[in-house]
Amino acid sequence: MNGVEKKTPSGLTALTNAWLGLVALTLVSLGLGQWFHGKPWLQLLVAALVWLKGHVVARRFIEVESCHPFIRRVVNGFVAVTPLALLGLAYFGAQLARWATL
């Protein structure tokens, strides 16, 4: 891929949609925490929302799809690590605590 989208008004529309999506996801995640605090499946949902928000910033704002593979891997890897760690902590928290005990 050797080209990028020229940012025309339609490009700004895509950025605006991404921004509105991020605002909505932020408010939704707050609401979920309030309404379903303590539910076992909430960790899964929060992890998914963390990944989705990072993915939107990476894809729409950084335009990571057209970036050099190293940059793409670094950004996508960073975006994926935290949700995976949140899930790992939710299901294997006690084991992690044992491993991390001096």
Binding site: L30, Q34, K53, V57, A58, F61, F78
Partner: peptide, 23 residues
């Protein structure tokens, strides 16, 4: 600059979920 600021934004989105979203 834009790349740095977007990366800093991604990190904040993680911190927000760590500290402010109740789970």
């Amino acid at each position: 600059l834009a790349s740095y600021w977007h990366a800093t934004d991604i990190i904040w989105l993680v911190l927000f979920s760590f500290f402010y979203v109740l789970v």
